[in-house]
Write a protein that binds this DNA or RNA. Sequence first.
DNA 1: CTATATCCGGATATGTAGTATCCGGGTTAT
DNA 2: ATAACCCGGATACTACATATCCGGATATAG
Lengths: 174, 174
Amino acid sequence: MRLGDGVEWALHCCTVLGALPPEQTIPSSVLAEFHGVPSAYLAKQMQALSRAGIVQSVPGRNGGYKLARAADDISILDVVLAVEGPEPAFRCTEVRQQGPSAVAPARYVKPCGIAAAMWRAEEVFRQELDATTLGDLVSELDTGVDPEQTEKAIIWLSQRLGPATTPVNTPEKS
Amino acid sequence: MRLGDGVEWALHCCTVLGALPPEQTIPSSVLAEFHGVPSAYLAKQMQALSRAGIVQSVPGRNGGYKLARAADDISILDVVLAVEGPEPAFRCTEVRQQGPSAVAPARYVKPCGIAAAMWRAEEVFRQELDATTLGDLVSELDTGVDPEQTEKAIIWLSQRLGPATTPVNTPEKS
DNA sequence: CTATATCCGGATATGTAGTATCCGGGTTAT
DNA sequence: ATAACCCGGATACTACATATCCGGATATAG
């Protein structure tokens, strides 16, 4: 049981996207350099997010990505499912129907208890992920992150972003 | 995010082990044929279960596997961890510490909110799996499985098992 | 209109899970 | 005592998923 690296990257990228002004776009390459991850592979994750309707792509010069909806309306689960795919982690291969002791397939009305227990666990897993939104993660940046870190990130991004409709907003709620 | 097939097989095997008399042993090859799965790979999963102390191997003629403890003292989580490994599904690569905006590593005292949320979800996932025991799965066989299926399985196993200390017990609680 | 910067999709490598086969060590029934 | 049987580990091979790279399409800025 393993989660791909793309999930972590996508979540970090969505977090910075949520911290920027709503209409500010940021190229995939800048996101990659910012996080120190290979830009080609991150681009693929961003495409998956785009297909899922989580981010919106703006082509052409000074284009890039931005969140497609409000950060509070996007849960971590949405991002995970978009990147990792919607299939459940546990695949029931209906092993009961194989082997010498199998009976007619039509008689297997209820799923076996094993698959049921697995899917139950996966359900609470998803519910927990669905309870946290990108907005929560963004808010946490103000409280949990070193101010020096934040400042350093802001000036680095400001240099590298095209002339936005609004400049990068420093948190004002302090 | 994907769980290996071995998890399913191991759970099914442990369930039939739990349905048998406590001292009855079954060879790995019989378990494989019973479920219609490749015996070589199932043997690997059984070894993992043995190392984890979930099943006990009995060598020699008429040997095989049996549960190492009572079925009620073995949770689904135990089996999953034994087969799949104890590592968490989400690996935080501390992407914050890379890239141009990183500060001194010592300043990262708290784990990032992303990893925290992921681990929280994984924790409830494991709690849910830990709440169901092999004993529960065995009990469910009596209620949820077609009687014809059960009978067919019993006679097939009886033919193939060496002279046990006690014969295969048909459920008596009906 | 041209050039640049960006997204998008297919093609390529690398790694991990799954499969099959073999031999040695140890234990039990005959 | 002997032979049959079973686990345990090592090895080699295949298939699939993950990770990576590169060229084409497209829209904007000047």
